[in-house]
Computed example of a mutant assay.
Amino acid sequence: MVPVECYFVLSALLFFIGVYGFVTRRNLIAMLISVEFVLNAVDLNFAAFNRLLYPGELEGFFMSLFSIGVSAAETAVAIAIILNVYRLFHSDQVNSIQNLKF
């Protein structure tokens, strides 16, 4: 069996890759993928802490499934917003939407 600490290290790595990608990228799709990395790190932490603290129960896994559902809905809404921004500005860069006005 893989030790729980390995899952925590992988989760921290995913989290920091996501934060670094979100801060350094200017492409909206790349930023969305970085946010998904952060959410996947959270899901992995839910499952790892469940295995560590409550090995016979499944609350952490159910919380992970709920979080995956929420992140899927968030991704659908974000892609719809990105498509509308692309139609309006003909660019998917963050710099192109700095001057949004009515």
Results as ranks from 00 to 15, higher is better:
residue 1 M to T: 09
residue 2 V to P: 12
residue 3 P to D: 09
residue 3 P to W: 05
residue 3 P to V: 06
residue 5 E to F: 07
residue 6 C to F: 10
residue 7 Y to N: 14
residue 7 Y to P: 00
residue 7 Y to E: 03
residue 7 Y to H: 11
residue 10 L to W: 13
residue 10 L to T: 14
residue 10 L to V: 15
residue 10 L to S: 14
residue 10 L to C: 15
residue 11 S to C: 12
residue 12 A to C: 05
residue 12 A to N: 08
residue 12 A to Y: 00
residue 13 L to G: 13
residue 13 L to F: 15
residue 14 L to F: 13
residue 15 F to V: 06
residue 15 F to P: 00
residue 15 F to E: 09
residue 16 F to R: 00
residue 18 G to Q: 01
residue 19 V to N: 03
residue 19 V to I: 14
residue 19 V to T: 08
residue 20 Y to V: 04
residue 23 V to K: 02
residue 23 V to Q: 04
residue 24 T to P: 00
residue 24 T to L: 08
residue 24 T to A: 10
residue 25 R to W: 02
residue 27 N to D: 15
residue 27 N to Q: 04
residue 28 L to H: 01
residue 30 A to F: 08
residue 30 A to V: 07
residue 30 A to P: 00
residue 31 M to I: 12
residue 34 S to T: 01
residue 36 E to T: 08
residue 36 E to K: 08
residue 37 F to E: 00
residue 37 F to D: 00
residue 38 V to T: 10
residue 39 L to E: 02
residue 39 L to Q: 09
residue 40 N to W: 08
residue 44 L to E: 03
residue 44 L to D: 00
residue 46 F to R: 06
residue 47 A to F: 11
residue 48 A to G: 00
residue 50 N to K: 01
residue 50 N to R: 02
residue 53 L to A: 10
residue 53 L to P: 02
residue 54 Y to M: 06
residue 56 G to P: 04
residue 56 G to C: 06
residue 57 E to L: 14
residue 57 E to W: 12
residue 59 E to M: 13
residue 59 E to C: 06
residue 59 E to F: 11
residue 59 E to N: 12
residue 60 G to D: 09
residue 61 F to T: 14
residue 61 F to Q: 11
residue 62 F to P: 01
residue 63 M to K: 11
residue 63 M to H: 02
residue 65 L to F: 08
residue 66 F to L: 14
residue 66 F to Y: 13
residue 66 F to H: 03
residue 67 S to K: 08
residue 68 I to P: 00
residue 68 I to Y: 09
residue 69 G to A: 10
residue 70 V to M: 11
residue 71 S to H: 03
residue 71 S to D: 05
residue 72 A to L: 15
residue 73 A to D: 01
residue 73 A to C: 11
residue 73 A to F: 10
residue 74 E to G: 15
residue 76 A to T: 15
residue 77 V to D: 01
residue 78 A to F: 02
residue 78 A to L: 12
residue 78 A to T: 13
residue 78 A to W: 02
residue 79 I to T: 02
residue 81 I to M: 05
residue 82 I to G: 03
residue 84 N to C: 12
residue 84 N to H: 05
residue 84 N to R: 14
residue 84 N to Q: 10
residue 87 R to L: 11
residue 87 R to Y: 03
residue 87 R to H: 12
residue 88 L to H: 09
residue 88 L to I: 01
residue 88 L to A: 15
residue 88 L to E: 09
residue 89 F to V: 12
residue 91 S to T: 03
residue 92 D to L: 07
residue 93 Q to V: 01
residue 93 Q to K: 10
residue 95 N to L: 08
residue 95 N to V: 05
residue 96 S to R: 07
residue 97 I to S: 08
residue 98 Q to R: 14
residue 99 N to T: 06
residue 99 N to L: 08
residue 99 N to A: 06
residue 101 K to L: 06
residue 101 K to H: 13
